[in-house]
Amino acid sequence: MKILVVDDYPTMRRIVKNLLDQIGYKDVEEAGNGVEALEKIKVHRYDLVISDWNMEPMTGLELLKEVRADAGLSKTPFIMVTAESKTENVVAAKQAGASQYIVKPFTAETLKAKIASVVG
């Protein structure tokens, strides 16, 4: 399974990659913001996108909306992993079509469970 991890902090990308490696997912690529991620998503097909929210110039929510608006990409499972934990954030992400929502800091078990729930 090919996964794209999107986060503006290299440390967080490395943490997520490490956890994915432990779970057994080795085919993982990275992007530092929404713009970079969207370029990659349009070129490569990913089976799962795991994205942070607060990034510049394009946020994770904006990226999610772009992905959902593209007929060819709209079915891509998309997990938001973010420190934004207010009700309005969770509701906005759900309305935009997020497959799952993980609040930072999170555990390896949470990541594993959410991935399993969206990719089976």
Binding site: W53, N54, E56, P57, M58, T59, L61, E62, A83, E84, S85, K86, E88, N89, A92, K104
Partner: peptide, 13 residues
Amino acid sequence: DPRSDAHLLNGPS
């Protein structure tokens, strides 16, 4: 902030 969801960027709470 030019981002469309700037009003939702609350940061950690």
